[in-house]
Design a protein around this nucleic acid. Sequence first.
RNA 1: GCCGGCAUAGCUCAACGGUAGAGCAACGGUUUUGUAAACCGUAGGUUGUAGGUUCGAUUCCUAUUGCCGGCUCCA
Length: 590
Amino acid sequence: MEKNNETLHILRHSASHIMAQAVQSLFPHAKLAIGPATDSGFYYDFDLDEHTFTQEDLVKIEEKMKEILKQNLSFEKVLVEDVDAKVAEFKSQGEIYKAELLEEHRNDAPTLYLTKDKDGNVLFNDLCAGPHVPNTSYIKGNAIKLLKIAGAYWRGNEKNKMLQRIYATAFWNKEDLENYLHLLEEAEKRDHRKLGTQLDLFSVREEIGGGLVLWHPNLATVREEIENYWRTEHRKRGYVIVNTPQIAKSKLWEISGHIDHYRENMFFIQKENEDDEQYIVKPMNCPFHILIYQSNRHSYRSLPLRMAELGTVYRKEKSGALSGLTRVQGFTQDDAHIFCTPEQLVDEINGVIDFVADTMKIFNMEFEVELSTRPESYVGKLENWELAEAGLKEAMDKRGMQYDINEGDGAFYGPKIDFKVKDALGRTWQCATIQLDFNLPERFDIKYQDKDGQLKTPVMLHRVIFGSMERFHGILIEHFAGAFPTWLAPTQVSVVPISNEKHADFAEKVYKKLRENGIRTYLDDRSESMNYRIRENLQDKKVPYVLVVGDKEQEANSVAIRQRGVGQIGTKSVDEFLDMILEEIKTRKC
RNA sequence: GCCGGCAUAGCUCAACGGUAGAGCAACGGUUUUGUAAACCGUAGGUUGUAGGUUCGAUUCCUAUUGCCGGCUCCA
């Protein structure tokens, strides 16, 4: 068997059997659920009534695994010939999860994998489709690692029992494992929550509530630049920009259907008196945009209408779901709704895909694309769905875009394209999305007058580029490991006079000149050593440039430039440096 | 919401039944520096919150809030 990346998941799956065997030998009452390989390792779910796994258990289990591996066991596949008998056997052993799985797969020629020793004794068996490595010599004791314990519902359904999951990983050799563990460490250092504190970017306070973010000046600066980019690009691409309220009467959300379909995610405003009107904090911007559309008559000539807003919405989340900037309860969507005729749809979708691709390119970000199609229960006409799905596919195919299709995974009101960006820890987050909506135009009964004079219902498209400003900034922080490119950096230049006494005036002059030209500059004339100030600005604050000025610079009206992550890059006149950095900012160099 | 873990100074962590300690940051002073951490000093905490056990609780127990790892959900 070849040892390559394609077969790595086979190794991991086999390792999960060894882990299950180790757990059952240490905890004989452990019932087995499922134990698949994942992208980065494997896990196994167990049901132990009387015991919860501890960190120490993980060490013991790992040791046990190594012991088992030393026995040089082989994996052997056997067909389950008498399913009923085997189900009964599983049940008698208390293996209720395996019994359930086997019954379900009774017509799929179910197989068992036996783990055997040299003499042919079966030490462990597991219901499993395979495949596996031939024997345990492929699994190296020093290339496996148990990572963490987590709760997981049986079959991922919260109505089912909570099982205990052990996450682990395995590689072909020790070096690969060590590289991976190192990668995890590096990823942890990039964690936007860690950098958020370190670089004074944002905070979330218990007094305010979970998932409600305070943007500190540093991150607010980054956001300002992002928003400037966003507005300029929208104007260029023919959008109009609007603003809408934070709250609305419940009546609006009845018409939109949110009260029926989105209730558990909405914040209701407490009424003082029984007779007071019920107001609700907006979880989405679309109803407002539709009302703006409705405030005028529209004809086919005035479409498409592209309406954008940086709209702040609030969505109630389950308490365990919040995390940093990526999962919050209050967030600003860079939202837009495009109202168009069916004929315009493909062009409009194309325009949005262009927008997303161009934007991600600016940040050097990789993304994956998924198309979700019509679910079983849906609203709208079948022909419209087919037109829309074909339009989405056509638009992506034309540009040779790779995408996965999630059949039947669209919303009840329309198909969608999701763009997913990976964070430092390899988790993917949805940022941009394009979503067709056959529901709201009907509910609000919006129309346009077509060439033939008839009033027709326009096609409506929801779309975001960044998704939410909060999440996107979280991803940005990790993407750049906190070292923002110059155009985004909260502080772009620090000026460090060698002697605060001798060079104070000149340093001040350089500082003012840069500031007057719109460069975010900090004059670091603290009574600290020059080395300390250089180090702190470049390494701790991650300022892109430090300008050191002393006698020589003062005399020549120049600055000695040190670039973050690079080192000294020479001396330039103040004007030359200014031109250089202005160009770098203008081109948004990453 | 569920399972498990955690909560000590602005930050990172220590002490774990007997009057809470360090480094960094802050503040004061000395130093005025030629390219990624100068020196000395000062101050800073009802140990997340509320109960309980105890002669005594940061330490043990209960509840609660928040955070972390997941499940579920999702921008």
